[in-house]
């Protein structure tokens, strides 16, 4: 773990008023706040991305447990990255398209619902096509796929065709009501759903992947439904 950071040249950042942090001492371990030592930018970004492992991660966590300013920073950076990946930074959402989608839902969806013909539940969080999808597409489970799940089934793997090299992906699994069941980040183009996420037979689920490209562009696959047999 790198502490301090001559290369980042942040004298102001390193001169945190000690008094502000000393009173947050209940939970701190043996390390005491040291104004001269903070996580460097490389370690901070690696921790935020979850790339630190083993002793390096433990050292970083031990420092974070006693250093309010570094903690503040990782939380803020994480929130910034989440904000980037969940809202369209680079283009305005096509308001007219979204409005048209709502009108279409009302005009077509309601009669069908009343008719009883539209049986598939619509997620509460309807996602408007506000981001580009052309470079990112889901591979498995395919849209409307029926997935066999039994007591001896292999873990469910979600896979997609990636955007550009170096992209980071946030994968989201939702229940039929649009509630997030599980979410995770990866740099890979597939991910295994943890075994303790319960997917019930007969249930419908949705999943989607958001990608953050190296140029800051965000893409999404859009929500895709699959069912469990």
């Amino acid at each position: 773990m790198g502490m301090s950071e001559p290369d980042a040249g942040m004298p102001g950042f390193l001169s945190e008023e000690p008094g502000e942090r000393k009173d947050l001492s209940l939970l701190r371990g043996s390390m005491t706040p040291d104004d001269a030592n903070h996580l460097d930018s490389t370690t901070t970004s690696a921790f935020v991305e979850g790339h630190l492992t083993g002793a390096a991660r433990d050292r970083a966590a031990a420092h974070l447990a006693v250093c309010a300013s570094c903690r503040d920073e990782i939380v803020a950076v994480r929130e910034v990255l989440t904000g980037i990946s969940t809202r369209p930074m680079w283009r305005r959402p096509p308001v007219l398209l979204a409005a048209a989608a709502v009108v279409a839902l009302v005009a077509i969806g309601l009669p069908l619902l009343q008719d009883g013909r539209l049986r598939a539940p619509v997620p509460v969080a309807v996602r408007t096509p506000e981001r580009e999808t052309r470079d990112l597409s889901a591979a498995s489970p395919a849209p409307d796929a029926i997935v066999e799940r039994g007591p001896t089934a292999q873990p469910l793997v979600l896979a997609w065709h990636g955007a550009e090299a170096g992209s980071r992906y946030r994968v989201n699994l939702l229940d039929a009501n649009g509630e997030t069941l599980w979410s995770s980040e990866t740099g890979d183009t597939s991910i295994t759903v943890p075994g303790d996420i319960e997917l019930l037979p007969g249930g419908s689920y949705f999943w989607f992947v958001d990608a953050l490209g190296t140029d800051g562009r965000s893409l999404t696959t859009g929500a895709l439904r699959f069912s469990i047999r």
Binding site: S41, T42, T44, S45, A46, E49, V77, L81, T214, G216
Partner: peptide
């Protein structure tokens, strides 16, 4: 640098 450039730049 370890990891994504974008994350590092945010930090």
């Amino acid at each position: 640098g370890a990891g994504k450039f974008t994350t590092w730049l945010v930090v």
